[in-house]
Design a protein around this nucleic acid. Sequence first.
RNA 1: GGCCGCGUAGCUCAGCUGGUAGAGCAGGUGACUGUUAAUCACCGGGUCACAGGUUCGAGUCCUGUCGCGGUCGCCA
Length: 592
Amino acid sequence: MRSCASVRMSPIARVVFALVIEPLRDGSAIAASSPTMRTADSSSISVNAGRPPRERTRGAAGRGRVGMGAAGRRRVRCRCGRTGMPPAGHHRPLDSRRLTTCPSGRSRGCGASPSACRRAHGSFPADGPLPTFEHPARAPCDGAPARRPRPALRPMSAPSAADPLRIADLPSRVGQTVTLSGWVSHLRSSGKIAFVVLRDGTGLLQCVLSRKEVPEEAWTAFGTLTLETSITVTGSVRADARQVGGVELGVSDLAVIGASPLDYPIQPKEHGVDFLLDNRHFWLRTPRQVAIMRIRHEVEQAIHDFFYERGFLRVDTPILTAAIGERSGLFSTEYFDEGNAYLAQTGQLYGEAAAAAFGKIYTFGPTFRAEKSKTRRHLTEFWMIEPEVAFNDTHANMRLQEDFVSFLVQRCVERRQAELKELERDVSRLEKVKAPFPRIDYTDAVATLQRKGSQVTWGEDLGAEDEALLVEDYETPIFICNYPKEAKAFYMKENPADPRTVLCDDMLAPEGYGEIIGGSQREDDHDKLLHRIREEGLPVEAYSWYLDLRKYGTFVHAGFGLGLERTVAWICGTPHIRECIAFPRMMHRLTP
RNA sequence: GGCCGCGUAGCUCAGCUGGUAGAGCAGGUGACUGUUAAUCACCGGGUCACAGGUUCGAGUCCUGUCGCGGUCGCCA
């Protein structure tokens, strides 16, 4: 496989490269330690399912606590010095109601009704035997030296005067009497004993009321409870091995804060995705959604930590812009006497200006695309992270990308075991995501695809099917680099080794999640850039300031854009990125 | 925008070659002192998206409209 073409540099550029870029490379190693042991039981979720799995809302305390960090099993130390979770025994059989495989090979059935599925494939998932999974073998120890251990995490919700007690704090309070508030997530009653499962955003807590032991008012208050009533409970924390968190609350008093009518839309049962999105403001309260949002939060924090530790400056670029950027659809709005303003499709061009001011920068903000895209990989409003580095060439750019993505994934593996388990993510797939990632030249990719039977010809952009064909041979993300000029944006630098192509890369995530990064070295030659702008039929005036960056002290530079929701969807194993943002904006969805 | 599919109870869905509507869950009432989507018994619940057409008769067949989903393209 041919590697990506190298850049031809002037003598001055070579000096700059040696003085500035090489030292940067050394500093860009990942600081995170990486557990190499396998984790507790998990099962894969097919992203190729014809229909996304139905959300099941689970209110019972028997399910995993959310927001507790890696809880439960003791971490062990390997002889190589790394720490991790001990390997589990066998996975439990998959519950037929939760994940089944239709004979067509698609998860959760072929998407057809049971009778139609039986007609088409001979049987329906519930007919077949339940699959069981052996736990994968322990990863071999490579004898690598121990990394510097990461400092211990502060508890997620350390109690303080300003912060009321939360469910996540209770394991350390066994034997104490506590008062805390939350929402009713589930109710059960057996005449003289009653169970209320309380939810407060940090976890679930089973509260037990014995008729003999609680005041009459509290027992009466229990009778009025409905799903999502907000309540305050007082009781004694006691250890109970049957609860996942290890504790339950023996209630001595209970008071209603705010009632919730009986027609609360989300019930502890299956719902369709469309219904759930109509009720997104309530759907967010459910354990699976809480887990996804906590992982998104972890990824966002990891992004800031990664760049902060490497001396990048965060630059917030404008959301209202003149028409500038990429070719795809724009949302427009009136802008005083200036005509139309457009919602930003990228902060990159501003990022390039900032890179000349600060050296290493990144942007983190919402991005708007008005294309009528209706796929599980697209949103009309999504969040993008766009680093831009002065004096980085395309190779340094890709090294930054693979270090960055490895850091984000390993950070989640390290700190979000509980959430990944709630999502039933196959963590062993994520553990393999470590730099370096394979680099495949576009021209080689086309040859490989043609060998695999694709109809693609040199010069075309690769389709989603082609990308899937390329990714199937790898367990880490891969780079496809140096696409034909015509397939890519005007600002990408011409490849000196093959002027038909540009110095760029797409990073494709494994497991069919597709493109999560698009990056390139930028055209730094004023005349070539001007020529490309004219060639694309773009208004030269609008780009005058952008051209100025090449006129006054032009510089080798490169950057990329990472799609936050696509990255989170891949890490979480969700079939659709709409679950990975609190309030998704799609072609047919503007509310809630 | 192209192609494919869906629209039946509050929710998730059955309803086969046309014969006037079904289940589970949710809700109501009752039973039950350890439940984990608790269980059991009984009860209420429908303009089959909308408009035409074919037919003795349409949830079912045909046409159109509307809404939605999947996929492709665009891209992150």
